[in-house]
Computed example of a mutant assay.
Amino acid sequence: MAQLTFLPCVFLLLFITCSKPIFQVAAERSLQQRRWYPTDTPSGVNTCPVSADRCGAECDRRCSATSHKGNCLDGCNKCCNTCLCVPPGTFGNKECCACYDNWKNKEGGPKCP
C-alpha cells in the first residue's frame, strides 16, 4: 500500500523538476516579444534635447530625406514626445539620445527613425 502513495509523489516531483526549464523558456520568450517602452529619459544622457512644442519642426527636419515620410513622421513624433530629443541630421547620430536610440519595435528593430 505504501508503494501506491509513493509513486504519485515520485511522478509529481519528476514533473516539477522537468517542467521548470520549459516554463522559464516560455517566460523568456514572452519577455522578448514585449515592446520596450521608455518611461523617462535618464538625466545627463540627452545631448540633443527638444522641447515638446518643437517636436513637429525637428521631426520635419529629421524625416526630410526619406521616401517614407508619413511613417517617419509618425515614429519620430511619438519618440520625440516621449524622449524629448531628436538626433541631428536626417539619419543616424542616435547616440546623443539614449531613449530615442534604445526604443525597439515589436520585431526588435529601432522604433525611432
Rank of each mutant, 00 (worst) to 15 (best):
G56T: 06
K94M: 09
C55A: 15
L7K: 14
K94L: 11
N105H: 03
V86I: 02
D40I: 12
C112R: 00
E95S: 13
I22Q: 14
Q32R: 10
A57L: 14
N102R: 07
P88C: 04
D60V: 09
D101F: 04
T41M: 08
A98F: 04
L14N: 07
C59S: 11
Q33D: 11
N105Q: 05
C96A: 03
C97Q: 04
C80D: 09
N71Q: 14
K94I: 03
V45H: 05
F11S: 15
D101Y: 03
G70K: 07
D74R: 05
S67Y: 04
G109L: 10
D60E: 11
P42C: 00
C63V: 12
C72W: 00
C99I: 04
T90R: 14
A52Y: 12
C79P: 06
R35A: 04
C99E: 05
A57Q: 15
C79Y: 01
T47Q: 10
F6E: 12
F23H: 04
Y100S: 00
N71G: 12
R29S: 08
L7A: 10
N81P: 00
N105W: 01
G56K: 04
C59L: 08
A65N: 08
V45R: 12
Q24I: 05
G109R: 14
C96R: 00
N102I: 01
V50E: 06
P8E: 01
R35I: 01
A98G: 03
A26N: 02
N71Y: 10
C59E: 12
D74H: 08
Q3H: 15
A65D: 14
R54I: 01
N102Q: 03
W36H: 05
E95M: 15
Q32N: 06
P87I: 07
A26D: 02
K106I: 07
L14I: 07
C79W: 04
V25G: 01
N46L: 13
T41F: 08
L12D: 01
D40L: 12
C99V: 05
S30A: 08
K94T: 07
F91Y: 14
L4N: 12
F6Q: 10
W103Y: 08
I16E: 04
F6N: 07
F15V: 05
Q3D: 11
R34D: 06
S43P: 10
G109D: 10
E107Q: 09
M1E: 11
K106A: 07
D53F: 08
E58D: 04
N93V: 05
N71E: 09
I16P: 02
Q24E: 15
Q3M: 14
C59D: 13
C63D: 12
H68F: 12
D101V: 06
V10F: 01
G70D: 15
G108T: 03
C83G: 08
K78A: 10
P113M: 09
C83D: 04
